[in-house]
Amino acid sequence: MTAPTYYAPTGGLPPQTQLLTDRAMFTEAYAVIPKGTFSDIVTSFLPFWDKARFWVLSRPLSGFAETFSQYIAEVMPGGGSDRPETDAGVEAVLFVVGGTIRVTIDGTGHDLSEGGYAYIPPGTAWSLRNTGDAAARFHWIRKAYQAVDGLDAPDPVVANERDIAPTPMPDTDGAWATTRFVDPADLRHDMHVTIVTFQPGGVIPFAETHVMEHGLYVLEGKAVYRLNQDWVEVEAGDYMWLRAFCPQACYAGGPGPFRYLLYKDVNRHMPLNR
């Protein structure tokens, strides 16, 4: 089995000679942010981070997707933060796509390299440093935790996808599989971040139409993805952002695996008092 690969942006700026025609689109049901838009001039800086910049992929928008934000962080050697999160009650998932970071969670340090995953519960003290000699790049997914009376907050989770066997979807002969970092039956969690893998020819064989919002970052390969009524070509480095009930399906044409990092909100009643 070929080792997984992880696309990560490096910035830069397109030349003045480049055509403006692009695959970027924002609709009432979904957005596509192709890899070519991740330039230097669309990065953000955040309080209490040093030697770091961030590509903001999604943020809560009224009338669109409202449950989460997602960044790609680029941290230079020695950089990081001793106070990365400034909002109370926020949980986080980190997923490393390049370089090495050391994440300290409640006083315990963890070294994460490519494929490394960390779930950080709400209200948890944590810090992060790039301990390598090259830029580190990782996804940072943030969500306001929805506490439920009678359920404890989840525990921290640190793992690497290379140590977890993907779970094949039923009746697919392994053409469609999901790598899960937490137990889907653990109702303490109100979000899941997984890796979905399609082998060449693998499909989502129906138009999924459901309440979960999605962020999908393509780690590897290419495919055609149905978003609402449109079929869109996507490749490694592209990001898709879907609001609730946006129909979706997929066909992976090859020649290699098509893999994406997937966010979805789960395990909670629908809020009625707004």
Rank of each mutant, 00 (worst) to 15 (best):
V56A: 10
G202F: 01
T86M: 13
E91C: 00
T67I: 01
T131V: 12
V203A: 06
R129Q: 11
R142N: 12
L128S: 06
T167H: 15
D87G: 06
G89V: 08
R137S: 02
N273S: 14
V234C: 03
V96T: 06
A125H: 11
Y263Q: 03
N267L: 06
A207D: 15
I195W: 04
V203C: 10
A125C: 05
T194K: 12
F138R: 01
S62N: 10
S69N: 11
M76A: 15
E114Q: 07
S58H: 12
V232R: 15
R102M: 13
D87Y: 09
A207L: 10
H269E: 11
P205Q: 00
T86H: 14
E208W: 14
D133Q: 11
D186G: 05
F258G: 00
A135W: 00
F245S: 11
V266W: 07
D230M: 05
W140I: 04
A31C: 12
C250L: 07
D152G: 08
F48M: 04
L57M: 11
G215Y: 05
M169W: 14
P34F: 00
L242E: 00
L262Y: 12
A165G: 05
Y30Q: 13
S39R: 12
D183E: 12
V158K: 08
L13P: 07
D171F: 15
F95A: 01
A136W: 00
M212R: 14
H210E: 07
H110Y: 14
I120Y: 10
G150F: 04
R259N: 08
H139C: 03
I33H: 14
G221Q: 02
P154Q: 03
E235P: 02
P4A: 10
G63F: 07
H110E: 13
Y117T: 02
I41P: 07
A118T: 06
Y30M: 06
A244P: 03
L261K: 03
R59P: 02
V32N: 08
G78Y: 03
L94F: 14
T27F: 06
R226D: 01
D40C: 00
D190A: 07
P4H: 07
Y217S: 05
F206H: 14
G115N: 03
A144F: 15
D183L: 08
R137D: 00
I141W: 04
Y6H: 04
D171K: 15
Q18M: 10
L20M: 09
P154D: 00
I164E: 02
G63A: 07
D87W: 09
K222A: 09
G254P: 04
R274G: 15
A252L: 06
F206T: 10
R259Y: 06
G109H: 12
G63K: 05
D190T: 12
A31Q: 10
I72L: 09
K143H: 12
G79I: 03
R23Y: 06
Q199V: 06
P154Y: 02
T67Y: 11
D149T: 12
R268F: 09
G254I: 04
G11W: 01
G79V: 02
P47M: 03
R268W: 08
A144Y: 14
Y251C: 01
R129N: 07
V211H: 13
F245T: 12
Y225P: 01
I141E: 00
A165T: 13
R259T: 04
S69Y: 01
S113N: 13
P168I: 05
D149F: 12
S69D: 07
S58F: 04
Y145A: 06
D50A: 08
Q70I: 05
Y30N: 15
R226Y: 07
S39W: 09
P247M: 03
M191S: 07
V93A: 05
M25S: 13
V32H: 15
